[in-house]
Design a protein around this nucleic acid. Structure first.
Lengths: 153, 153
DNA sequence: CCAAAGAATGATATAAGGTATCATTCGATA
DNA sequence: TATCGAATGATACCTTATATCATTCTTTGG
């Protein structure tokens, strides 16, 4: 497990390598995603940066920064929830299977897992049978996390 | 393949059986979903009903009707796209595997397929390993449909 | 047949997510 | 240090969605 600061440092280096810059505001948004450790909407990020870091960011800037972070593979958008999360593999140098997101319907906690590659291949095959191409094999799956599912029962 | 009218008749009967009513406005929205044969937003449905059926429905009503149609298993919401589609199995009496939605990122066309049950079981198993419970095994998958993927290449 | 109750729909306001556009500021580089 | 491009700010507006209260329609019991 890495500290937020370590991850930020790593992200900064990886941006440098790719010829882009992790500015202070971009760091701020990324830190917020890392520290909160859950999926957040753009407007929640505005509030979080204001309250926790005392940085006032207009929503428009947050959206732009989120776009940037996604391009740099530092964050992902969860389309089903209209929220954003930090990529959980920022500090890894090795390649990964495509991430699958488990979204807790109750508390919005998100877990990023890699499923068995052959499962995805099977799915892909079924999809191609139907005449479609998978645009992104990244799945977002409606779930309940352990604690929330315990409470519900 | 059934005509829209046949599907509507079938839906009306199934509502009657379940003790609810498929009113004329509800029919209108369902017809729009069936005729257009694609995923539509609530506001697109407002426009469609106005232009094609000359029925003026306020957005609020359309949302309520969409909720109703979902309760009756006549329509589904696609969370990733914030759009709605008619269930493709309205006229079927037998049970189905859980539907998976293939959404064309380009033209919004949606195909509802059933994937191999064991694939879903595997996925479910992986998810439980991660300490989560699948809330709905219904997946929404970012795709390109045949025509759009041809154009793109 | 009529009144009352409940379901369905309408009208209005507003929240939340997101984008387009133009202005301004910051920062590297010549 | 002047300048050019990248980053950020400000403003306006669009789309999706919900909350709330009013009105209409439809049963159904008397």
């Amino acid at each position: 497990m890495n500290t937020v600061q370590e991850i930020i440092d790593h992200a900064e280096n990886s941006c440098k390598t790719r010829g882009s810059k992790l500015t202070s505001k971009r760091k701020c948004v990324l830190s917020a995603l890392l520290q909160s450790n859950k999926a957040m909407s753009a407007y929640e990020l505005v509030d979080y940066c204001k309250q926790v870091y005392d940085k006032t960011l207009p929503p428009m800037s947050v959206y732009r920064i989120l776009d940037f972070l996604q391009e740099e593979h530092l964050a992902h958008k969860l389309n089903m929830a209209n929220k954003y999360i930090a990529c959980s593999h920022i500090t890894c140098s090795h390649g990964h299977g495509v991430p699958q997101f488990l979204i807790c319907n109750n508390c919005q906690q998100v877990k990023e897992i890699s499923v068995n590659e052959s499962t995805i291949d099977t799915l892909k095959h079924d999809i191609e049978q139907a005449g479609f191409q998978m645009a992104s094999p990244r799945l977002e799956i409606n779930c309940l996390c352990g604690p929330c599912s315990d409470k519900a029962s």
